[in-house]
Write a protein that binds this DNA or RNA. Structure first.
Length: 851
RNA sequence: GCCCGAGUGGCGGAAUUGGUAGACGCAAGGGACUUAAAAUCCCUCGGGUAUUUCACCUGUGCCGGUUCGAUUCCGGCCUCGGGCACCA
């Protein structure tokens, strides 16, 4: 009998489904376990990244379930988004059709991989039954003042024809299409995530189950700076300007003042003066630059306004400049410049020949302004600072704020890099924002009983701009307050809104009375294990944390964080090929190092994440046909630790296939023993002991390794067990040996079940069992059977291993030294030398020091 | 520049508390079986010196320290990967 996965994999998938074995319900008598994988965007096909993500999650889910936990393991579709709309433009296909057919296709592919999802909880975020509740959340956010509409300068992607959140701009480019992002002034909806900045940051220190890397990225993104606001008076008027600084201790060293070109005071300051004309030109020049240009070009440029402010600590007059490197959207848009102790201010001072005044002296060094080539930004003691002289810079920070606070000239202040989340999108395929504009009553939310505001079906996708604007039936409506004529909001919500709460909806996906059923959420949430790619470290994971905190404060939730443990799995990569003329090549287009199209040299490119554009994609569907689901699943978890990158290797897959074959042969060729012996073996006899030990040791290692997500070593432990069983199979002598062997094979099938569930079920059935292995109890191991009676004691002499001795377990110090110190090899090292020290570590080693 | 993470064979990677570095797998080489191939099985596999075999030296990015003993702990560096970045 040969291992032929295509003969039975679909059979088991069908049986699991027919018997509803992955369908789970609230059961207060059982401990719950929520295993969640990031829901996919229905792009059309499952790719290797999905397979890896879901294989990891499936091992954990199946394992936890076999351990007796009530495991919820849902799957759904992040179904709104631009690709559906682009497909509509190109192929004349409605985004809904395109999306739902992709979902059907991908669901089929997932089922063929045998993942243990509870499909009764499936959610598609583009369904009105889903986004209805999102609209309700949105209105409640608005009622709490956490959603607001504001005219502001926003990121605009000309290619996608929509606004982007700050999180969606990478290096000045659109995260989706890489076009250069423009700045545009528009009236937009925002969510006040900044109100939660402090708590979001604080909890990054409490999330013990998250990778440090992700927490750091979130901390960087939130970017908290502790400092002070200081008020400066103008020399020639009663006006004041406030600056934010993290270095109030350097206030005595301020030698000029800088304002952002967009600062609201700037135009007034130069109005009617000789500086007006050139100043306006300077401002206009900077305004012309896009985000990428302005940050790329680090050259400091400034313009003197002709005005002066007074330094509140020493009444010095400081010239006021407009500077290109001062940003309006951070701090107050005004900066006190301390060239001696700030890198950028130093460059500016050099450029415009402004004075540099040292106020911090580092220990053991004497700074001299004429000789400095760069600013000194480190620690030190204060000088040239009046009453603060001699203070440490940290103390001076507090002292100076205290002093100035008496005259209301300063206060302690905190600034965040995090901006409010812009969620308006000028696209069709998203959840409509449930607001209307009435001529009489102004902006009004749609009444709850009228939700959802459904997307209209008949729309012209080929038009310019937002297709929703052209749908008269949709736009024209009545006011929920006065019933008069009103117009609907046509912006839709950012698709990250849907993924910010879907894990809550999974708990009661069909609840039609509220966002979710609180009882269900109280039982299942928070998520015990969340698994997904590192690319969501900031955007999705920050938004979901924000939503959780907001819903908690609205009384919907009674916990602070949605995801207790997070695993960020690495990418699946493969080598690439490139030709100078024809660009990226498929491996099939390369022959003997030459490009098949033009015959020139094909260059082996970097190992990169699998992507269509780089032509290095491996289709899981084809692999499934070739090797079966179990092999792909096993490879995905065995190739590397989950958080590392996997470099795709056909040979590696082949190796996993070979291993499953090896297991299949081992079990099938010993089927008679497996069936005939059902009693518990006794722990006697060399062969039986070896078998039982190998079994308990494997169970121990696999159990512990899955728990700490070392799935690769869990698989190696099973491989080792199989190797031992192959050797033992030759040596079975009596009934007890065979009983041990039978016990071991049964255990092997059981511990394989989370990794290769199909072959495990098949072997289980071949062994005459009628139950599902997926529903079997995970085996327990007994420590006393994992250890051997004999142990090897290593002898180190002056730190080097010189000999090995076999002793009975727990041999005493005296016994060991008696043998060791009589051994001729050991003695040869001691000859003519003095034995200075003897160290004995039980069951491990002896260490001798000689002189 | 600031902040995180990581450096171990030809490769992916093991070593859970400081205790025989290289588990498991891949690749490579040799052999068995076979008319042949596939499949399977066995042996070798960090580097070096031996080969009168069983041995010795060296080795976990580099330099130093602690220790009987360091991939693991401490100090200093180097390199790579990632995040943030005219953020005041």
């Amino acid at each position: 009998m040969k291992y032929n996965p295509s003969a039975f994999e679909s059979k088991w998938q069908k049986r699991w489904e027919e018997n509803n074995i992955f369908k789970r319900e609230v059961d207060n008598s059982k401990e719950k376990y929520y295993c969640l994988e990031m829901l996919p965007y229905p792009s059309g096909n499952i790719h290797m990244g999905h397979v890896r993500n879901y294989s990891i999650g499936d091992v954990v889910s199946r394992f936890k379930f076999m351990q007796g936990l009530n495991v919820i393991h849902p799957m759904g579709w992040d179904a709104f988004g631009l690709p559906a709309e682009n497909a509509a433009k190109q192929n004349n296909r409605h985004p809904a059709d395109w999306t739902y057919s992709n979902i059907a296709n991908m669901k089929e592919q997932l089922k063929k991989l045998g993942f243990s999802y509870d499909w009764t909880r499936e959610v598609a975020t583009c369904a009105p039954e889903y986004y209805k509740w999102e609209q309700k959340i949105f209105i409640e956010l608005w009622k709490k003042g956490l959603a607001y509409k504001k005219k502001s300068l926003v990121n605009w992607c000309p290619e996608c024809e929509t606004v982007l959140a700050n999180e969606q701009v990478e290096d000045g480019h659109c995260w989706r299409c890489s076009s250069i992002v423009e700045m545009k002034e528009l009236e937009q909806w925002f969510l006040k995530i900044t109100e939660y900045a402090d708590e979001l940051l604080e909890y990054t220190y409490k999330l013990k189950g998250w990778p440090e890397k992700v927490l750091t990225m979130q901390r960087n993104w939130i970017g908290k700076s502790i400092g002070a606001e200081i008020i400066f008076k103008f020399a020639d008027s009663d006006k004041t300007v406030t600056v934010f600084t993290t270095r109030p201790d350097t206030l005595y060293g301020a030698t000029f003042m800088l304002l952002a070109p967009e600062h609201p005071m700037v135009k007034d300051l130069i109005k009617g003066t000789e500086y007006e004309q050139d100043g306006l030109k300077f401002i206009a020049d900077i305004a012309k630059q896009d985000k990428a240009d302005r940050t790329d070009n680090k050259q400091k440029k400034g313009f003197f306004t002709g005005k002066y402010v007074i330094n509140p600590v020493n009444n010095t007059k400081l010239p006021v400049y407009i500077a290109n490197y001062v940003l309006m959207d951070y701090g107050t848009g005004a900066v006190m410049a301390v060239p001696a102790h700030d890198t950028r201010d130093f460059e500016f001072a050099k450029e415009y020949n402004l004075p540099i005044k040292i106020v911090i002296q580092p220990e053991g060094e004497e700074l001299n302004p004429d000789k400095m080539t760069e600013a000194y930004t480190g620690a030190g003691k204060l000088v040239n600072s009046g009453e603060l002289n001699g203070l440490d810079y940290d103390e001076a920070k507090k002292k100076i704020i205290e002093n100035l606070a008496k005259d209301n000239a300063a206060k302690a202040s905190v600034n965040f890099r995090l901006r409010d989340w812009g969620i308006s999108r000028q696209r069709y395929w998203g959840a409509p924002i449930p607001f209307v504009y009435c001529e009489k009553c102004g902006m009004q939310p749609v009444k709850e009983e009228d939700l959802p505001v459904e997307l209209p079906k008949n729309v012209d996708f080929k038009c310019q701009g937002n297709p929703l604007d052209t749908v008269e039936d949709f736009v024209n409506t009545t006011c929920p307050v006065c019933c008069g004529k009103a117009k609907r909001e046509t912006d839709t919500m950012d698709t990250f809104m849907e993924s910010s709460w879907y894990f809550l909806r999974y708990c009661s996906p069909k609840c039609d009375t509220n966002i979710f059923d609180k009882k269900e959420v109280d039982y299942w949430m928070p998520v015990d294990q969340y698994i997904g790619g590192i690319e969501h470290a900031v955007m999705h994971l920050l938004y979901a944390r924000f939503f959780t905190k907001v819903l908690r404060d609205m009384g919907y939730l009674s916990f602070d964080e949605p995801f207790t443990n997070l695993l960020t799995q690495g990418m699946v990569c493969k080598e690439t090929w490139k030709c100078e003329k024809d660009g990226w090549l498929f491996p099939s287009e390369v022959k003997d190092g030459k490009c098949c199209k033009c015959g020139s040299d094909a260059i082996k490119g970097r190992v990169e994440k699998m992507s269509k554009s780089k032509k290095n994609v491996v289709d899981p569907g084809i692999l499934n046909d070739q090797y079966g689901a179990d092999t792909i699943r096993l490879f995905s978890v065995f190739a590397a630790p989950p958080e590392n990158e996997i470099e795709w290797s056909e040979n590696g897959v082949e190796g996993c296939y070979r291993f499953i074959n090896r297991v299949f042969r081992l079990v099938v060729s010993n089927m008679d023993i497996l069936k005939a012996y059902n009693d518990t073996p006794e722990f006697v006899g060399k062969t039986a002991k070896t078998i039982i030990r190998a079994t308990h040791a494997a169970v121990k290692k696999v159990t512990n390794d899955i728990a700490r997500f070392q799935l690769n070593t869990a698989v190696s432990a099973i491989m080792e067990m199989v190797n031992t069983l192959y050797l033992a199979a030759e040596k079975l002598e009596n009934d007890n040996d065979k009983a041990a062997f039978s016990f071991s094979l049964n255990t092997l099938i059981t511990i394989l079940a989370p990794f290769t569930p199909h072959v495990a079920e098949e072997l289980h059935e071949l062994a005459g069992k009628t139950s599902f292995i997926a529903e079997s109890r995970w085996p327990e191991y007994d420590e006393k059977y994992t250890i051997s009676d004999e142990i090897v004691i290593v002898v180190q002499i002056n730190g080097k291993v010189r000999a090995n001795f076999t002793f009975p377990r727990d041999a005493e110090e005296n016994t060991v030294f008696d043998t060791v110190l009589k051994d001729s090899k050991v003695l040869s090292y001691l000859e003519g030398k003095e034995l200075v020290k003897k160290i004995f570590i039980k069951n491990k080693l002896v260490s001798l020091v000689v002189k």
